[in-house]
Design a protein around this nucleic acid. Sequence first.
DNA 1: AACGAGTCTGAACTAGTGTTCAGTTCTTAT
DNA 2: ATAAGAACTGAACACTAGTTCAGACTCGTT
Lengths: 224, 224
Amino acid sequence: MVYRRTHQVVKRLAARRSAILAAARDTCADGGMAAVQIAPVAIRANVAAGTVYRYFPSKADLISELIAEVSRDELAAIRRAADAAPGPSSALAAAVTTVAVHVVSHRKLSWGILAEPVEVDVTESRLASRREIAGEIELRISAAIRAGHLPAQDTALAAAALLGALHEALVGPMAPDNLDDQAKLRDAVQTVTLLALRAVGVMDARARGLVVQAVLPTRMVVGA
Amino acid sequence: MVYRRTHQVVKRLAARRSAILAAARDTCADGGMAAVQIAPVAIRANVAAGTVYRYFPSKADLISELIAEVSRDELAAIRRAADAAPGPSSALAAAVTTVAVHVVSHRKLSWGILAEPVEVDVTESRLASRREIAGEIELRISAAIRAGHLPAQDTALAAAALLGALHEALVGPMAPDNLDDQAKLRDAVQTVTLLALRAVGVMDARARGLVVQAVLPTRMVVGA
DNA sequence: AACGAGTCTGAACTAGTGTTCAGTTCTTAT
DNA sequence: ATAAGAACTGAACACTAGTTCAGACTCGTT
């Protein structure tokens, strides 16, 4: 008498797993990382607390996967935007704009993923997430340097600094709190993108042009 | 029979309070914010755990004061450096360099003060701390703009972004881990300062000059 | 239908720390 | 010296939230 998982069961299990992760993501988007506790997440996912532990060994693992998932999504968006751009400088501008728009569109989630205090240790996955995103930005910076549009520089440091600037200015506790307004939001994204581009050495006049081009086609998705 | 605090007692009480704060600071510098727990801090300050509560209503208050103290010190250093500079642009460069040197010199402490997860809620004092430092940087940016050395811009956003860049590049989890070497440390400080100045619109050539001038006189104090 | 394997439940358990407080020690004033 | 007010001690307490697990339930096979 061998018990085999029927296809239907496999699907249900996968669905549950996703539901738990989605519940964690929604909870984080609503109330930040602090709100991501096993009991509330379980309720939101319509399972009991114990069930969570049939899918994730520990809270740390759950949050790590959450971070990885969000990070994957963002990386994909960045690549898509950058690859669609006509040249290396526009690609960099597009990449930066994408990050900016993403973080302002999901402030709490981003803050939770990036830096908000958590009880459990998720340093590793946060680090991995940053490395992924920073690595992509670094690639784009390098390409622009090779194309002669930027001065030679320490690309790793530049990428890190660039992301730090975006994050602190747009999602950190110092971020302006009136970004609900669509217009102000767009202004903030433009300003910070311009700043970031200038930081790596794009000439001011050229940077303004790139920013306008990059921001225009970008969907400003505000909401949970 | 009135009991009055004699001068000697007042002094001893003040000394104890300072000792506790200093113990907290040292503990943070050694092991980050996570290590700042009442019991270890009390031991380090040569008092019992309960005594800490005669000086600070709660752990949150202790840490808040710690943050405020460190922040005050840093602000003073920034002002000193900037005020000693010959002009607005040099002042800005000096301010930025000071922040950079400070954070690389006390990485764990800075990380603890700035962003490391803590159990208790210290959002308020962290926010206050950032506002103080960012405010000072903002002043210097404004001065440089008024002097015609920088393009007009949203100074608040610029200051926040600038600090974010420094922090992420130099103390965050992505910071290069080989900054023990004095030379590499100086390189990193220079690179990031240059980046930050370019971000607010200093011309590349001019920025390089300012950075060299600002970094040279700055003491690189490495250690606890 | 019946049985076994897999899955789910949620109350109880656990662990780590901040906080308290009754008893002790120190300090001041007479 | 002595009494009374302050300060200190450190073991006990309390609280919070992650984790466990014995029992209930569901699903797949015969």
